[in-house]
Amino acid sequence: MPVVDLAEYAVDRMEQFRPAHVVQEDAALALALTEGDEAAVRMLYERFGGLVFTVAHCMLKDRQRAEEVTQHVFLQAWRNADQFEPGRDFAPWLATIARRAAIDVLRREQRRPAGSLEVADLVDSALVTLAPNAEQIETVWSVRAAIEGLEPDERELVKMQHVEGHTHAEIAERLGIAVGTVKSRLHRAHRRLANRLAHLQGPNS
């Protein structure tokens, strides 16, 4: 999918989950942003900072550069706030800026003087030749948003199970709660995640 199609594609995917009050908040936020309101910048960052950072981090495989790209994305958003269409969703707009900024970094990294591949770090972004496509970016964005939408206790349990690989019994022991409680909270969290990520499933799943 061409890069230029990302915004329309992502709008279609993401906007169906936006309640009316969120649309109104976004419109007010866009207006405040064009007025140069510092509080609006902070609010925009609080809502989307983690999402933008995750997209950049997944593309660049480097935490520091991902932070630099995140900062750049919000600077660009502020510079171009008057181009934001009221009523639209910030998410795909910021995702597009983030993707392009990360691609710029990847291209610059690839122009660095060549060194020996034997000593190159395996996560060196200069070794990355293909930037993720729009669908992959939307997947990353959606998963991160779904994670942020969990209750803190649910988020902790899901992370312990899926990232750290702990069993229900191990989680229960570590947190000092009953195994049944772990199961019920994880089940609730999985349902939330499955509902929020349903659009990522293929037509046959």
């Binding site: 910048v41 960052y45 609080e46 495989k61 995140t70 998963v143 992370k159 990232v163 995640l193």
Partner: peptide, 19 residues
């Protein structure tokens, strides 16, 4: 969900740096 990058967050000071 098993991808640790999905769970990583930027530094606490990034908000201040952006502003």
């Amino acid at each position: 969900l098993a991808n640790p990058t999905m769970w990583d967050s930027p530094g606490d000071d990034l908000s201040d740096r952006v502003v």
